[in-house]
Simulated assay, not measured.
Amino acid sequence: MTTHPAPAPPPGARAYGLSTARGVFAVVDCPAAPGAEPRGVALLLPGFTGSKEDFTLLHEPLATRGYRTVAVDGRGQHESDGPEDDETAYAQKELARDVLAQAEALDCGPVHLLGHSLGGQIARAAVLLDHAPFRSLTLMASGPAEISVSQQQRVKLLRDALAVMSMAEVWDVIQAMGPPEEVGGPARGIGDQDLLRRRWLGTKPAQLLATGRQLCTEPDRVAELAALPLPFHVLSGAHDDTWPVALLDDMAVRLNAHRTVVEGAEHSPNADQPLPTARALADFWDTAGRERT
């Protein structure tokens, strides 16, 4: 696993608790850069084992394009609270309702929604509940249904370990084995091992168990999504073991979506190649914003 030094949030970014009708969620909120024409707001949802820090490298280049970006820890992730043992609290529909509440709490009109990996499937569920709060949906390294068989096996190993070990013990095992692409994959862009350990220990076991099961059993809902009057963007790296790139290509066709493949990136384009990823996002949002006005 390659890592990079953990970057500091850009000037003007704030970390705080976003109060919503469904609780308080930890966010990093970065405004558009001074002098840039404000062009919209984007809500960024992290993936399995991830957190709001996975988007740190995107904030500044998107701010220079005029976009305010709000990266969020979902319920039970890192610095957002949630029950330790109640998996029902992390049912996909519950997490989707959280996203709707977050968009409402921003109180800025429709937002561009982006979900990375698991976050993409949660974002999809939110949009299917109510697409009105959103200008567009970007699925980043997030496929149409369940993850690949190899990744399902790795998620099952994690779930089996969590059944008999503490979070601290599982962390030690993950470090000894090396995190697989989906389990710990977003860590690729963060070199601060203390931060990685803190966010792992801050994540609730029930959240990992419930969402890991979702990743392994998610049905294909692309046809439902395609029926919505919303601009879609399917973005991925040039290689992805969690959902094969050819599968993402096909999903984009089924959605009539804008398609971006980021060269030199794998499952986390936001960390592997943040500048071309940010450029592709801003280009899409510029167009999507015009379509929805």
Rank of each mutant, 00 (worst) to 15 (best):
L158K: 10
M167G: 13
G143Y: 00
K156I: 12
A125W: 06
L118T: 01
A168G: 11
G115Q: 06
Q121A: 08
R124F: 01
L114G: 00
S136A: 13
V155S: 05
S136M: 06
E169T: 10
G109S: 13
A163L: 13
L100W: 09
K156W: 10
I122V: 15
A123R: 04
I147P: 08
V164S: 11
M167P: 08
S166Y: 09
K156T: 15
D107V: 06
A101H: 11
R135E: 04
L162C: 06
A105M: 08
V149H: 13
V127W: 12
I122M: 12
I122P: 07
H131W: 12
G119I: 01
L157M: 10
L100G: 07
G109V: 11
E169I: 01
V164F: 02
S117L: 07
S142K: 03
L106D: 03
V149R: 15
G119T: 05
D160Y: 08
R135F: 04
M165T: 05
L118V: 06
D160V: 09
P133W: 05
D130K: 13
V164C: 03
K156V: 14
V149G: 08
A126I: 09
A103L: 03
R154E: 15
C108T: 13
A163Y: 05
R159V: 14
P133K: 03
L129S: 11
Q152P: 11
L118N: 02
A103M: 04
L158C: 04
R159H: 09
Q153G: 14
L137N: 01
Q151H: 13
P110M: 07
V155H: 04
H112M: 07
A126S: 10
A101M: 07
R135V: 15
G143H: 02
L139M: 14
P110T: 05
E169N: 06
L100N: 06
Q121W: 02
L162T: 00
M167C: 09
M140S: 04
F134V: 06
S136P: 14
G143W: 00
C108Y: 05
P110D: 11
G119C: 04
A161M: 13
I147M: 09
L137H: 00
G115F: 04
S117F: 03
D160E: 14
V149I: 12
L114W: 03
E104M: 01
G115I: 00
I122K: 09
G120K: 03
R159Q: 15
S166Q: 04
L118E: 12
A163I: 07
A141T: 12
M140P: 01
L118W: 09
L100C: 10
A161V: 00
A132P: 06
Q153P: 00
E169F: 02
M165E: 15
G109D: 12
L129G: 12
Q152M: 14
A125T: 14
Q151D: 14
R124K: 07
H131A: 14
L113P: 02
H131T: 11
V155C: 07
L137Y: 03
C108M: 06
A101Q: 05
F134T: 05
S148F: 01
S150E: 15
E146F: 12
A103K: 02
A126Y: 05
P133M: 10
R124I: 00
A105P: 03
R124M: 11
M167H: 08
K156Q: 15
S136I: 03
L106V: 08
E169R: 10
S117M: 12
P144S: 07
G119R: 07
